[in-house]
Design a protein around this nucleic acid. Structure first.
Lengths: 250, 250
DNA sequence: CGACGGATTGATAGCTCTCAAACCCCGTGG
DNA sequence: CCACGGGGTTTGAGAGCTATCAATCCGTCG
């Protein structure tokens, strides 16, 4: 079940770009010819670390990551989850020193692209550059919502909100069914994402189960009452700026 | 004391771009010729609102803004402060629907640029496009630190951290002395930025004054012990990605 | 079978909130 | 010149959410 080298449109990055605007033949060709060093990395590994000065960025081809920061006294905060199609450290293209650490949550297949190649691509195809820029803006929107979530919602709705976000995003890349998905995220990690303790995250989960909102089986999340979960989590997916496809998903 | 139409290099936007990389004559010229509709707006006004679909973006020429979001039950969270040179809603260039509201904290002079003109500029001058992109990446870095701040620091260090950030950023645009600046931010707004209540923000301020860290005189903030403030706030300005100038500031 | 990381549970402490009221400063209007 | 009104700042006391600290439980893995 090792991720194969990604042919044509099974490349999540290309699929993502195509969801933003239809690629011309040239653009598509350039993306396919882009030197992509595909590497498989085990779970729980740091791909890049705060303070690094990478000469390349990467796209997640399969697997999940989390982007995190740490306070001076060692408390960790997860600020984003990465799913296939995301490029958690594109910022390093413009900002020399990384201010974040990207850690794998599962085994991941990552496609590394040198900054040189990325620059070249962006200069030759301004629309692709714009699409990357757009992606970082969407990421920014997500950060803003995350701040609101951590700053102004209590633990319970906070958890509900993040579950909604994850489910919607995973569905957008075809990795979730209607109301269920695989979430390789421990309660400790949820706690670090929500700014609460693992103990409290656990109690929140129990309450949500007791309330009939969700069910968990191992890493699998099953949402029993989607409408209620959205309501409780005060969730409105507008901020994810997903592009609605007219037709059905692939 | 009305902000005058901004000639040449008194335009904070141009100054900011120049701090990122030296502009060529062409680039500089294009920026100066950019149709900029300068508007003065009173304090406490919404410039754009969540849900809007603006056809233009704006740069802050003078004054301060805050970018905020609101939960379903009306709790407000400030996610960023805008200072001269910032473009709080550039995102609208790529993302149709605004997910944030930008409110003036003081009277502001704003330079509006239509998205059409912005696109044109970006396509003609890829380096300028890259600089804008870079700016949104820096903004993203700031959001990430904000999440860490709200999620993992207690109220006291949280406040210290935000004061550090504001002072450093204002100094970078020449709006702060070494350890003092004008902060037109009420305690209520600080509270909304920190994810705490106004009452608690007030108590934190009192404690910081009692500890000899700061002094406030009206809207003026005077930092009495900068080293200690940074330490307490666990502040390291790396994430602001400021570009150090070799020479002195203007 | 022992080790280990994650999930759970219980009891206590503590940071922050909530609610209310008072206080202050300042611009407005009589 | 002073009363009035309004927003921001302070204060106090009590309640509540979440953290802390410790153990226990559980499933997986060598």
């Amino acid at each position: 079940m090792l991720p194969a080298p990604f042919p044509s449109d099974h490349n999540p990055l290309i699929r993502k770009l195509e969801s933003i605007f239809p690629l011309t033949e040239d653009e598509r060709q350039a993306l396919l010819e882009l030197p992509l060093q595909v590497t498989v990395i085990k779970e729980d590994q740091d791909v890049v670390r705060e303070g690094d000065r990478p000469a390349r960025s990467f796209a997640i081809l399969s697997g999940m990551t989390c982007t995190n920061k740490v306070t001076g006294d060692g408390k960790r905060q997860i600020v984003a989850f990465g799913i296939p199609g995301d490029m958690p450290d594109v910022q390093s293209l413009h900002l020399k020193v990384l201010d974040i650490t990207v850690t794998t949550l599962t085994q991941c297949s990552l496609g590394f692209i040198t900054h040189e190649d990325l620059w070249d691509l962006c200069l030759r195809f301004p629309r692709i550059a714009a699409a990357f820029w757009r992606e970082t803006l969407v990421e920014g929107a997500s950060f803003r919502e995350w701040i609101l979530n951590v700053g102004r919602r209590e633990a319970y709705p906070r958890m509900a909100h993040i579950l909604c976000e994850l489910l919607v995003r995973l569905k957008a890349v075809g990795l979730a069914e209607d109301h269920a998905c695989d979430l390789p995220i421990t309660q400790i990690e949820f706690a670090d994402a929500l700014g609460i303790t693992a103990v409290h995250a656990n109690r929140v989960f129990q309450q949500m189960r007791a309330d009939g909102l969700i069910e968990t089986r191992g890493t699998r999340l099953i949402v029993l009452n989607w409408e209620r979960l959205k309501e409780v989590g005060d969730f409105d997916e507008t901020y994810l700026h997903l592009i609605k496809q007219g037709g059905a998903a692939a």
